[in-house]
């Protein structure tokens, strides 16, 4: 009897380190190619059951977040400018030529445009740079390759769903975060968990910018819209969340849009003009003039436009 007990103990001892090892490698194994990174965040399976949401999302800029608008690829083009006019010009960046660009360099943009680049090696940074250059030289395939990486379901409903990780814990690998706890019938994501900030502005705010990104070695600044939401909109008593206007009132759901869409244009500003024609008299001088009064009221939850 005694011997048997000892046996179990040994088995456990052997077992635990193996489990720990597996968990660690699962978390730290980094992607070595664009295709590997895209696979780590593969959402093609979500489409099967959430088809409407998937199709909405696919139309949004989140679905091409390092490429930019379909018609221009402006974001990819600006990544190239960043390399040439930024990284390669700065004497202390360590980048003398495009081949020197690493993940750390691209993070000045990827912080918000592709946060999961943190889960990739410098090989992926290099592949992105190569495709950015090829795209600006007219290579359609390169554009497609860049569009494989984006802000998708698993970014908002898993990786970036928890912002206060010490308070709320780290996102669990096999869970999707939504409005409640429960079971989820997807093979690799069998749990449904209540996301603590799913309906809060801060979920969007984590990428929509406050000002200079001070945590970077060389701060960048792109979107500052969340700053105006906090300090100009909520400061004046505004109570709606990003989700209320962009997903619900607009009727666009996961196709989060702005000035390009008719729906958002309608919600954006009240525009009112009065014209008063009259003669103005100054001593002997008579000046016929039209006074034009223009009123523009911003109805959004932040300044227009963002810069």
């Amino acid at each position: 009897m005694r011997r048997f007990k000892v046996f179990i103990l040994i088995a456990l001892c052997l077992c635990i380190p193996v489990l720990v090892f597996a968990a660690q490698t699962g978390q730290t194994k980094k992607a070595n190619s664009i295709d590997e990174l895209a696979k780590m965040y593969d959402v093609s399976s979500c489409k099967m059951c959430h088809e409407k949401i998937y199709n909405e999302w696919a139309k949004s800029l989140h679905a091409r977040s390092i490429y930019g608008p379909e018609t221009s690829g402006r974001t990819a083009a600006t990544l190239k400018t960043t390399i040439i006019n930024g990284l390669m010009e700065w004497p202390h960046s360590g980048v003398k030529k495009p081949e020197d660009v690493k993940v750390e360099h691209l993070m000045i943009c990827a912080k918000c445009h592709l946060p999961q680049l943190q889960d990739a090696t410098d090989k992926v940074a290099q592949e992105i740079v190569k495709n950015v250059y090829a795209f600006t030289a007219g290579d359609e395939k390169a554009a497609e390759q860049l569009e494989k990486l984006n802000i998708n379901c698993l970014v908002c409903h898993n990786r970036n769903a928890i912002i206060h990780k010490w308070a709320d814990g780290y996102p669990e690998k096999d869970a999707v975060y939504g409005s409640k706890d429960g079971a989820h019938p997807a093979p690799m994501y069998s749990k449904l968990k209540k996301g603590p900030v799913q309906k809060e502005a801060i979920l969007c705010g984590q990428c929509h910018g406050l000002g200079p990104n001070f945590e970077l070695e060389n701060p960048s600044q792109c979107a500052t819209l969340y700053g105006t939401y906090l300090w100009a909109y909520t400061a004046e008593g505004g109570q709606e969340k990003c989700q209320d206007c962009h997903m619900h009132k607009s009727g666009l759901g996961h196709n989060m849009q702005s000035y390009r869409s008719k729906e958002m244009q309608k919600l954006a500003v009240d525009f009112h003009v009065e014209v008063l024609p009259h003669w103005w008299r100054d001593g002997t001088k008579m000046i016929p003039q039209a006074t034009v009064k223009v009123e523009i009221k911003n109805r959004a939850g932040h300044a227009i436009p963002d810069g």
Binding site: T228, Y233, V292, V294, E295
Partner: peptide, 15 residues
Amino acid sequence: SIPPHKTVHETFDIA
């Protein structure tokens, strides 16, 4: 930029 909740007023006089 146009601040949220605020109305911007412009006046132009055309002779």
